[in-house]
């Protein structure tokens, strides 16, 4: 049985004009999998997640969570899932332990108070009020609230957005630990590194649809190319047709260029084997009479995947 399945999910918010947040989205998340929904702001990630969490009704489409549907078995599903919302302001006056005790009381079975505090590493803050915690610590309390019912599936909406690097690491630690314990996790993110580090599989979502699906490695191989050479030159522009014919350069569409403000030319080449491409590339630059200002070789990331898929950067707002 798959942990989560949704087929042809559609959510349209009424209005003038109506907002089509989700337009025919299919997903399947296996048991024990950590699945990421990656996409820019406004792509429909949160709406999708909230439909799966039973917090919103879909306009149409079929949703199954743990083989059950929300209309018939909502109460049962709620006992077996844990969620964090993108933003929840827990009551500032309550302590960590009090907050978790409240959430624990809603579930038939679940973690002991101490276990839920330990798993997010907040033992020293057990009796501190929420108001005294840092953003990262608050996020870990929110995670503990999601965990306290010992759920089979965790839904995490942008679990590390807005946190400092150290807090992000701590949140990731918790998610990894849960993964190891075999929990099914569905998270949304617009951070490439988060998706790459945590997720077994990813769906890239844009304009309410899945536009690519696979493991991070597959996606990078398929859409980002193995390696990228970033070349900066000044003077006469090297002829692109010639560069594209160099050994190891794959795919014309993977070449992008832009003319920077300082008059240098920047080229990004998708290549399979950089060591074969670089010597003739340098020779070509020299022959064209241009000077070399920079040369970088790096591995493609999901950022490049997204750019290749949509022509936009992930952090851009959806137009």
């Amino acid at each position: 049985m798959e942990a989560i399945v949704c087929q042809n999910l559609v959510k349209t918010f009424p209005g003038k004009p109506p907002v089509e947040a989700v337009r025919g989205l299919d997903l399947g998340v296996g048991m024990g999998e950590c699945f990421g929904i990656l996409g820019p702001n406004g792509a429909g990630k949160t709406t999708t997640l909230e439909i799966l969490e039973g917090l919103q009704d879909p306009t149409s489409g079929d949703v199954r969570v743990l083989g059950k549907n929300w209309e018939m078995d909502g109460a049962e599903i709620r006992q077996r899932i844990g969620i964090t919302l993108q933003e929840t302001r827990l009551s500032e006056k309550q302590t960590v332990a009090e907050t978790l005790e409240l959430f624990r009381s809603f579930y038939n079975r679940g973690l002991t108070l101490d276990a839920s505090i330990a798993i997010v590493g907040l033992e020293s803050k057990r009796d501190s009020r929420i108001s005294t915690l840092s953003g990262g610590q608050k996020q870990r309390v929110a995670l503990a609230c999601a965990l306290v019912g010992d759920p089979d599936i965790l839904f995490l909406d942008e679990p590390s957005t807005g946190l400092d690097p150290q807090s992000r690491q701590q949140v990731w630690e918790v998610v990894r630990a849960l993964k190891l314990r075999g929990k099914t996790i569905l998270l949304t993110t617009h951070y490439m590194d988060e998706a790459e580090k945590l997720c077994d599989r990813l769906a890239v979502v844009d304009h309410g649809k899945v536009i690519a699906l696979g493991t991070p490695v597959e996606l990078i191989r398929q859409w980002g190319g193995g390696n990228l050479i970033e070349l900066g030159t000044f003077g006469p522009e090297p002829r692109r047709e010639e560069i594209l014919q160099l050994p190891g350069v794959s795919g014309a569409k993977s070449v992008t260029d832009s003319r920077a403000a300082d008059g240098t030319n920047h080229l990004v080449l998708r290549v399979d084997r950089p060591h074969e491409t670089i010597p003739p590339l340098l020779a070509l630059v020299e022959k064209s009479g241009a000077g070399l200002s920079s040369l970088n070789v790096r591995q493609a990331t999901l950022e490049d995947v997204f750019l290749a898929l949509t022509g936009r950067n992930l952090r851009d707002e959806t137009p």
Binding site: S105, T112, R181
Partner: peptide
């Protein structure tokens, strides 16, 4: 972090209304 030790499970929650 030893998860199996930490993920102690119990099934006697407090009354939610009282909480």
């Amino acid at each position: 972090m030893n998860l199996d030790e930490q993920l102690e499970v119990n099934s006697s929650p407090q009354s939610p209304m009282w909480q």
